[in-house]
């Protein structure tokens, strides 16, 4: 089953075509990576898929339904959740509250119920609490549930970002460089955890990554973006050998060497 599909997707910022003519798709249960050098437009793609930016060209379909131009919260409610490259937790709130906020997508009590503390309020809040605690347990964060998010270690914050995204009960999970800033051991653990999440929840995942080697082992297919254009698509081995990909990454390595 096709979860996500884009056709001719593109966006202009003034005169700049940040992303153009992007066709990509994800099937149910797949783990697909979107890679490319710095500034290739990966995060811009995410921002279009999650409604932060409105695409200027093309269309996005989610389970066959056109979703381009919808607002971020509506897309989250439809089942697209994301994490942020530069961690954006609710810093002053507790770990538990971070997850509970995401859970409320599925609550049905109104603010009147809350104010009057009607029975429905108690029921819903209890359910939310239980589900949130269960999720924190799965993600190994239950012990720090009452800590403020900003007091967490870097790795824990990254995990909480994923937990928070999962709490919205997504059908599609978008992870934006989840391993950024992690050491090799943490990265390895994270990749294992992503695998586990995918199996446990039967999740379809699109993963942005800067470092090509990281995603080779876990993704089924890889899209490579450079300067806003798709330059390669295929299985890890095909992509690894693709001369255009090598060139794109070599160019960057050369730039790094000069810098």
């Amino acid at each position: 089953m096709r979860v996500l599909e884009t056709r001719g997707l593109g966006i202009r910022f003034g005169g700049l075509r940040a992303v153009q003519e992007l066709d990509l798709f994800l099937d149910q249960g797949e783990l697909v990576a979107l890679i490319g050098p710095n500034g290739a437009g990966k995060t811009t793609v995410f921002n279009m898929l999650t409604g932060v930016y409105k695409p200027t060209e093309g269309e996005i379909r989610f389970f066959g339904e056109r979703i381009d131009g919808m607002s971020p919260y509506a897309l989250t409610r439809k089942g697209i959740a994301r994490t942020f490259q530069n961690i954006r937790l609710f810093q002053q709130l507790s770990v538990l509250d971070n997850v509970r906020i995401a859970h409320q997508v599925n609550t049905h009590h109104t603010f009147i119920d809350s104010i009057l503390r009607l029975p429905r309020f108690g029921r819903e809040e209890r359910r939310m609490l239980e589900e949130s605690r269960a999720l924190l347990e799965t993600m190994g964060l239950l012990a720090v549930a009452d800590e403020a998010a900003r007091n967490l270690s870097y790795g824990q914050q990254r995990r909480l970002e994923i937990a928070r995204a999962l709490a919205t009960h997504p059908k599609l999970l978008l992870l934006d460089e989840p391993a950024a800033g992690m050491n090799p051991r943490e990265t390895h653990e994270l990749m294992e955890m992503i695998e586990r999440v995918r199996k446990t929840f039967g999740m379809t995942i699109l993963l942005i990554e800067h470092d090509m080697s990281l995603v080779m082992n876990i993704s089924e297919r890889i899209y490579v973006l450079d300067h806003g254009v798709l330059i390669a698509h295929g299985g890890p081995e095909d992509v690894r050998k693709n001369p255009r990909v090598i060139e794109a990454y070599l160019g960057e390595a050369a730039e790094d060497a000069l810098a």
Partner: peptide, 30 residues
């Protein structure tokens, strides 16, 4: 009572989420 009850509920947490990070709040379905 109204403001305390509102704050200590899912709706209040949505308000707090906006205070903390509007973009993230929106991404969490708020």
């Amino acid at each position: 009572i109204v403001i305390a009850n509102l704050t200590n509920s899912a709706h209040g947490r949505a308000l707090l989420a906006i205070r903390e990070d509007e973009v993230a709040a929106e991404a969490m379905g708020v």
